[in-house]
Write a protein that binds this DNA or RNA. Sequence first.
DNA 1: TGTACATCAGTGAACGCGCGTTCACTGATGTAC
DNA 2: TGTACATCAGTGAACGCGCGTTCACTGATGTAC
Lengths: 207, 207
Amino acid sequence: MAFRPTLEKKEEKERVRAALLRAALQLGAVHGFSSVGLREVAREAGIAPTSFYRHFADMEELGLALVRELVGRCVRAIGERAAAATRESLVPALVDATLAAVEQDPALLRFIVSERVGASTGLRALLRSELALLAETLRSVLARTGIEAVAADETVPLMAADAALALLLEGCVRALDGAASVRATLLWGLGRLLGMPRSTDPEVAHA
Amino acid sequence: MAFRPTLEKKEEKERVRAALLRAALQLGAVHGFSSVGLREVAREAGIAPTSFYRHFADMEELGLALVRELVGRCVRAIGERAAAATRESLVPALVDATLAAVEQDPALLRFIVSERVGASTGLRALLRSELALLAETLRSVLARTGIEAVAADETVPLMAADAALALLLEGCVRALDGAASVRATLLWGLGRLLGMPRSTDPEVAHA
DNA sequence: TGTACATCAGTGAACGCGCGTTCACTGATGTAC
DNA sequence: TGTACATCAGTGAACGCGCGTTCACTGATGTAC
């Protein structure tokens, strides 16, 4: 008795849904997600405004899907690159994975850095939790590779992971704005933060 | 022949103008500055929508005034605290000045961290330039106090200042979200970044 | 001092517009027998 | 195979609403003589 749409039908619906997510991302990159309207998104995706409701109850729900799906995939990819790194390759791996993400999908990264501070409460909370997962991955990598592990204070690795994430996000912001030498600055800052001076950047004498 | 309004008149106009800026800040803190409307701001400030035009041509102009006046004053205050610090007191001075700013005017700080990535191009550019001034102040303090000065690479102090600013802004974001232990994390991160390990946080052995 | 005029912040009515949302409908396709 | 029915993405008309903006006006107050 159950109605079972063919694979083709499901794929078509999925395409429209993806177009909506994509459109919201693109439009949000221009003037902020919270000021993107339902009609605007539908127009950009090439469907009638009323058809929007076949996919999402409202823009809030679309935003949550955006975080759960696209953002989740993106930060997981970065986390995996970090998890696969060795002690020596961790910093460049993190930096390159992050900058690659910016290059591959600028609108998505703009959404992340922008909605992390500006969005509605629910969306912001979800976004934060996705990023917290990445911080936790970082923390465990730091622990595994022994970086920071000798610190007496157990909160240090978490602080290090959080601070590293902060720098990476800041790097995204600058890269999105077309700033130069973002990579060098990130490599320097993360190396410094995580206690791994680079050979080309000799440790400075301490006071 | 020139019309010269009394001081009292000018003060009254200034009060209304300040109320508009304040209202925009308050409303923007809730759902993002770019989605705050002219009528909404006027309503919150207690004037008729049409009276808005006696003060600003549009919301964009109000936003620019917000940055030039309130944001400018805020970051200058932090810069001055940093400039007055000694080598030893720089990090705590920076952290405390920043967290004090958050406590004193949360809506303003939310505006700063949020519009830095989300706003219209013009507003964003102006906001960046205000923050760049702070970064430059930091850089010169680092140079004056000798911190990082022995680094062979001349770009290091600027990278250090930029990275420090990134951490401070991230600290604001967390403090605004009511996170705990922001101060400790910032002290740790900045000390680490600027090459000044704290006595309670012994330097970790380098690889 | 009085009078005529200029300035200017604030106002209410009115406008056209795009918004989110509802509704009843279409048409393609799957299911039951 | 044919027939009757269910499912469901997409649609166009219509709604009420709040928006930004214009306009002509008011009323308080400063200026000139």
